[in-house]
Structure formats: C-alpha cells, structure tokens
Simulated scan of single mutants.
Amino acid sequence: MAWQQLSLDTRYPDFAEEILESQGALSVSVLPAEGAESIFEPGPGETPQWSRARLTALFEEAADLDAVRLAVSELLPDAAEADPEQDEVADTDWVRNCLDAMAPMRFGERLWIAPHHREVDDPTAVVVKLDPGLAFGTGTHPTTDLCLRWLDGAEIEGARVLDYGCGSGILAVAALALGAREAVGVDNDPQAVRATAENARNNGVDERLRYGLSTEHDVGAGYDVVLANILAEPLIRLAPTLLATLRPGGWIVLAGLLDRQAERVMEAYPGIDWQQASCDGWTRLAGCSKSTAE
C-alpha cells in the first residue's frame, strides 16, 4: 500500500496542523522551513518556534488531497504563501521506524510511556507499553501529554473511565494501569479500535477495557472520568453526548483544542467548574460537575 504526502510552509503551524488532522492526516511532522529563523531560544522540554515552519502530513492512498488543499486555502491565514506539494510515499513500516527511535517518556510522578523494546529503570514506575499502529496517540503531542499528566495526578483508583476518541487507546490503558476499575474506549476509526485492542492486550488490561466504533457502541452513562482528546469543533458538537455520560460529581477532561478555542468549548459544557492547562499553544480543560465540586 502506498501513502500520499502533502507538505506546506506556513507562519501558523498550529492552525495548519489542526486543518490537516481534521482532513484525515494520519501524522503531521513540523520542522523549520528552509531559511527560517528561530523566534526564541527554547527552554528544556520546550518546542522550538520558527518564523516559518514546514509541515508534512501523511494520508491514506485513497484520500482526496484536492479537498485537503481546498481546506488549507480557505482556512489557513497565509494560504497564498503555503505552496502545498504533493508526493506519493512507498509503503514502509513508518510507525515502527518511529518507535525504534522513541525513548521512554515520563508524565508526572509515576506514569511512563515506552515502546515494547525499551525498559524503564524505576521500580516505582507505572509503565504503559505502546504500539500506536496507525492511530493517533504516542504521548509526544502536547494534547496527549497534558491528558497523561492529568491522569497521573488524579485520584483514579477504582474509577470508571470513558475515552471518547481513543486513538491508540493510550489514555484508557494508562488510566487502567494507574488503578481505574474499568474503561471504555470508542473511536470512529477502525484502525484506532484495532490499535486500542492490541495495546490493551499488550498491557494486560484487556479484561477491564471494552472498545468499539463510536457509531456502533453504546457507551452508557455514570462514568467517574470522561476523556476526549479530539478537536475543538467535535468537542463542541459532542457536548450533550459527553455530559450525558458523566456521573454527578465526575470529572471531564477535554483536549485537542488551541488556547484561543478554550472559551468556546467551555461555554458548550454548562455546569462544569473548569481548570485550564496549556502547553505550546494547546489547552487541556479538566472540570468537575458543580453539583458536588468544592
């Protein structure tokens, strides 16, 4: 199977990445554009920013890149200068190549995400072994990072957890590894469901994790924690659905939105006391039902 690749230059990499992912990009890499200058000197663990960035997005062979180009031209502020370039990429195990170079990553005090061939030398560590397959979620993106750090610091022991838009299943599996009683993961992408199933088996939590397509799986209600790491517009549309799954006094954690989108998303979820955290221009919202919140 071949893949399609679309590359473009922009002064607005966060906008461009959001557009490409909303159009079905399987992965998006961000590097400095040719001749770009660094805007500031990054601190430890920070992502560099450049005057112009080069984004490269990978799509399935059947993807309609004309539609992607149209979305870019309509939504990207500097679309006239983006000059998208399209290529075909020969089939390769690009995810495995990425994982081979991936080191274990720590999120908070206890939680680590590691590829299967890497060990964590920490007897107190809670380690999730991850193979994302073709689904989103390795922990490297700020949105996933923010959610994993929230889970590490939350009182998750014995909780019922819903991971809506589960991607690789990283959040559901991490919640179970941290002591959640049971979890449900749903996604609209069959690749994500398969990746979630495999990662659950590899981490020995498959008996406590139910999963399926969001269009076919009735997730029910009464969850102690509801996680949704997707995009701002879907989060707004899904507000009634996600609120209905949350028990009184439960926590809802939303990510995948830019800082500028946080206010609109919060307004779509009445009755929640929000806490906001940010990383590299991305926001995580975590809120508890006002019915029992202190």
Rank of each mutant, 00 (worst) to 15 (best):
D14I: 07
E18L: 02
L20H: 11
L20K: 03
E21Q: 06
Q23R: 15
P32F: 13
A36Q: 07
F40W: 13
E46S: 07
S51R: 09
R54T: 07
T56D: 00
A57K: 05
E60T: 15
A62S: 12
A63E: 04
S73F: 14
L75T: 10
L75K: 12
Q86W: 11
D87V: 09
D100N: 09
A103N: 13
H116P: 14
H117K: 08
E119W: 08
D122S: 06
D122N: 04
P123V: 15
V126Q: 01
P132F: 00
G133E: 06
G133F: 08
G139D: 07
D152G: 09
V161H: 09
Y164D: 04
I170P: 11
L171E: 11
A174S: 14
L176Q: 03
E182Q: 14
A183E: 08
A192F: 10
V193W: 14
R194E: 15
N199L: 11
N203I: 14
G204L: 05
T215R: 02
G220M: 03
D224E: 12
N229M: 03
L238R: 08
L242Q: 00
D259P: 01
Q261V: 03
V265E: 06
E267W: 12
D273S: 15
W274S: 15
G287L: 05
A293F: 04
